[in-house]
């Protein structure tokens, strides 16, 4: 288990997040995909800082986790309002705005 294992794991997880974001339609799943992407970036930061540089990168992880939590709070609030208004979470069925 070396540096490149962790790095590739992070990149693969990020790719899974991107693919999930592109192919899924449920709003909650889209939120989860974004969370997966943010956390895989955390993993990449930790890998870089553990194997190459000092502890700086591990401190960034805390910042990113805080921001991710705040983002989910805003996102879930919007999702709840969306469900109340439209009665569905399927993003492909929410298309009042053309384009």
């Amino acid at each position: 288990m070396g540096f490149y294992h962790f790095l590739s794991l992070g990149i693969i997880l990020f790719a899974i997040g991107v693919v999930g974001f592109v192919i899924r339609n449920n709003t909650i799943v889209l939120l989860l995909s974004v969370e997966l992407m943010l956390n895989s970036v955390n993993l990449i930061f930790v890998a870089f800082s553990r194997y190459l540089y000092g502890t700086e990168g591990q401190i960034y992880v805390f910042i990113i986790m805080t921001i991710a939590a705040a983002e989910v709070a805003v996102g879930l609030a919007i999702v709840v309002s969306i469900y109340r208004l439209f009665g569905t979470l399927d993003i492909s069925k929410i298309k009042l705005l053309k384009g």
Partner: peptide, 22 residues
């Protein structure tokens, strides 16, 4: 319309910030 705009803006914005972070 406003809520639809918001969810679209939110999802794409969060996606963009994840890419920025990478």
């Amino acid at each position: 319309e406003g809520m639809e705009a918001s969810i679209k803006y939110f999802l794409l914005g969060a996606f963009a910030s994840a890419i920025f972070l990478l």
